[in-house]
Design a binder for these strands. Structure first.
Length: 294
DNA sequence: CTTATGACCTGATAGC
DNA sequence: TGCTATCAGGTCATAA
């Protein structure tokens, strides 16, 4: 469920809560949430058993929608939240009883006990043991596109210029750009006044600038509001994200466009629900005149 | 190499 | 009430 702003909200809170603290014990209740991609199961199991046990947390970082929690040597865990995953700290008053697949217990002077849970009903998410920063980069992060929160026009051009796939697909492709999911793809395209069906390699320079800046501003605004709780998302303390109040297209198919009053359309694109305004976001590959939108 | 597709799961909700 | 069908914010392996 969580996209970049939701994961960033969680990352900030975790950095505040667990950096400098030492893991006293780790309980893994469901082995299969420990993942071993592309055949390095043995290696993963060897390191995975520890899951930061006895380690002092030195950093909580993020690329796109992925978290990395590590000690000062860089050894750590890569956390993917998938569709329904979350991290909850023991201060959250309503931690669900079910689906708490992993719990980390931190050392404390008893006045300040702290637990951290990995919770994931659908189990599309998972935790990956990583042996160091190089390992993280080689196996995972170097293969991903640049982080969407700070995407530049130039980097977006690299991601779009050589592909005739539609913009929606490219925005959702983590190897092209990291961190945009279904909600912010639709919101960014609407803000940039670009049709989601538009072939990526047909957008001109001013459209490219508009798209890069729309992605950054949508994500930045969502981060500031603690992300979007459309349905289930909760941050590490159990709170909802308020950006749901700012959504202009996502989930609004059949309603009026907030910019121009046209009916918002719906189509399944890249196997995802896609909502756009046919008037604000015309699928024309020609330069069109500025019109009344926004 | 790129790209499209299905698999992986549970839970909430709608319709009969 | 109980059944079935459909939908959900992501990632990964596979095959064309």
């Amino acid at each position: 469920m969580p996209e970049l702003p939701e994961v960033e909200t969680i990352r900030c809170r975790l950095a505040e809560a667990i950096v400098g603290r030492t893991v006293k014990n780790t309980v893994l209740r469901r082995r299969d949430v420990l993942r071993y991609p592309s055949g390095d199961r043995k290696k993963g199991q060897k390191h995975g058993r520890w899951l930061l046990m006895g380690k002092e947390i030195a950093s909580v970082s993020r690329l796109g929608k992925q978290l990395y929690i590590a000690d000062k040597l860089g050894l750590g865990i890569r956390v993917c939240l998938g569709m329904s995953g979350r991290i909850a700290l023991s201060g959250d008053p309503e931690i669900p009883k079910r689906h708490r697949h992993i719990t980390w217990y931190f050392e404390s002077d008893t006045s300040n006990p702290l637990r951290m849970h990995f919770i994931d009903p659908r189990r599309f998410g998972g935790v990956y043991a990583v042996t160091g920063t190089k390992d993280l980069e080689n196996r995972f992060w170097n293969r991903m596109g640049p982080d969407a929160l700070t995407i530049t026009t130039e980097k977006l051009r690299d991601a779009t210029k050589r592909t005739s796939r539609n913009l929606k697909s490219v925005l959702l492709d983590q190897n092209a750009i990291s961190g945009v999911g279904n909600i912010y793809a639709d919101e960014s395209l609407h803000k940039a006044r670009l049709a989601p069906q538009r072939a990526a390699n047909t957008i001109n320079d001013s459209e490219l600038r508009r798209l890069a800046s729309s992605i950054r501003s949508c994500l930045r605004a969502a981060c500031q509001m603690g992300g979007t709780t459309f349905k289930d998302y909760r941050n590490a303390d159990g709170d909802k994200g308020e950006f749901v109040k700012k959504l202009r297209v996502y989930g609004r198919q059949g309603l009026n466009c907030l910019s121009c009053k046209s009916l918002l359309e719906f189509e399944r694109l890249a196997q995802r629900a896609t909502v756009w305004c046919p008037r604000c976001q015309p699928n024309s590959e020609k330069i069109h005149k500025e019109h009344t939108c926004r």
